[in-house]
Simulated assay, not measured.
Amino acid sequence: MSTPRRAVTAAATATLAVALTASLAGCSSGGRGGGSDADRAAPPPTTAGATGAPAPTTGPRSSAPNACDSKMPGEVMTAEEAVVRFSDQQVCPGYVTVALGTPVTWRNTGQATYTVTIKDGPLPTSAELRRERVEPGASVAVELPSGQFAWTTDALEAFVGTVEVQG
């Protein structure tokens, strides 16, 4: 393999890794390129660290009314944070991590009734564990056992989310 081809392959691999990480941590907008500019989180502010290099700090991700504040996979959410908002336009967040005993809530922000299906394992082909119909504006809260669970909704049929329950 020639050097330019290796560089292109490495760049493509890095781009795919960044896109996958962003997808796991954030939202899906039904294949519409990641939502509007208002839905995208701004990069975190930085301050100079001891070595002079920028050190990341935490702060609000976005002040937009429909913004998706999500955490990276493995960062535990409280019951108040573990609310998945979904419609035929967007699902957010796509990856939820909670401690054992913490419910995950699915809130239908769309105009139609949709079904949320929770799988008994991490793959979308896993057996069905639970299926809930959620009316427009309604929510359903579910406590799951320890493990990793794929979930889908007919609001965005190609989307597959994940709930990770630690403990």
Score class of each variant (00 low, 15 high):
residue 42 A to L: 15
residue 148 Q to E: 15
residue 26 G to D: 03
residue 73 P to M: 01
residue 95 Y to I: 03
residue 65 P to F: 09
residue 132 E to L: 09
residue 111 Q to N: 11
residue 59 G to P: 11
residue 9 T to Y: 11
residue 3 T to D: 07
residue 63 S to N: 13
residue 12 A to V: 13
residue 114 Y to W: 11
residue 12 A to C: 10
residue 62 S to I: 08
residue 31 G to W: 00
residue 41 A to L: 12
residue 140 V to E: 04
residue 153 T to Q: 02
residue 41 A to T: 07
residue 46 T to W: 07
residue 140 V to I: 11
residue 66 N to S: 15
residue 23 S to Y: 14
residue 50 A to C: 05
residue 59 G to L: 14
residue 93 P to M: 02
residue 74 G to M: 04
residue 156 L to V: 08
residue 68 C to A: 05
residue 63 S to H: 14
residue 147 G to W: 05
residue 54 P to F: 07
residue 100 L to V: 08
residue 99 A to Q: 13
residue 163 V to M: 00
residue 92 C to F: 01
residue 85 R to L: 03
residue 15 T to F: 10
residue 43 P to N: 07
residue 129 L to D: 00
residue 133 R to P: 13
residue 51 T to M: 04
residue 161 G to L: 02
residue 121 G to L: 04
residue 91 V to P: 01
residue 37 D to W: 11
residue 42 A to V: 14
residue 61 R to S: 14
residue 73 P to N: 03
residue 99 A to M: 09
residue 98 V to K: 02
residue 125 T to Q: 11
residue 112 A to H: 10
residue 96 V to G: 05
residue 156 L to W: 02
residue 8 V to L: 11
residue 132 E to S: 13
residue 126 S to T: 04
residue 30 G to A: 02
residue 160 V to R: 06
residue 14 A to K: 10
residue 77 M to N: 06
residue 81 E to F: 03
residue 107 R to W: 07
residue 113 T to R: 15
residue 137 G to M: 07
residue 28 S to M: 00
residue 161 G to D: 00
residue 155 A to Q: 09
residue 99 A to E: 14
residue 129 L to G: 03
residue 71 K to Q: 13
residue 4 P to F: 02
residue 43 P to G: 04
residue 92 C to E: 03
residue 106 W to T: 07
residue 130 R to W: 05
residue 26 G to K: 06
residue 83 V to Y: 03
residue 69 D to C: 13
residue 163 V to N: 06
residue 122 P to A: 13
residue 102 T to S: 01
residue 68 C to W: 06
residue 117 T to K: 08
residue 104 V to H: 01
residue 73 P to D: 04
residue 23 S to D: 14
residue 22 A to H: 10
residue 138 A to K: 14
residue 72 M to L: 15
residue 95 Y to H: 13
residue 26 G to M: 02
residue 39 D to V: 11
residue 147 G to E: 09
residue 38 A to P: 10
residue 125 T to A: 12
residue 132 E to R: 10
residue 22 A to C: 09
residue 103 P to E: 02
residue 56 P to M: 03
residue 41 A to S: 12
residue 52 G to A: 00
residue 134 V to S: 05
residue 130 R to Y: 07
residue 42 A to N: 14
residue 28 S to Y: 01
residue 162 T to V: 10
residue 137 G to V: 05
residue 8 V to I: 13
residue 109 T to P: 03
residue 46 T to L: 10
residue 116 V to I: 12
residue 55 A to C: 08
residue 162 T to F: 00
residue 97 T to Q: 01
residue 149 F to G: 01
residue 146 S to C: 01
residue 23 S to E: 14
residue 47 T to R: 15
residue 139 S to T: 04
residue 3 T to S: 10
residue 161 G to Y: 05
residue 160 V to M: 00
residue 41 A to F: 10
residue 131 R to K: 13
residue 34 G to M: 04
residue 159 F to N: 03
residue 89 Q to I: 10
residue 167 G to L: 06
residue 54 P to R: 03
residue 131 R to Y: 03
residue 161 G to E: 01
residue 154 D to K: 01
residue 99 A to T: 12
residue 153 T to C: 00
residue 20 L to K: 09
residue 44 P to L: 08
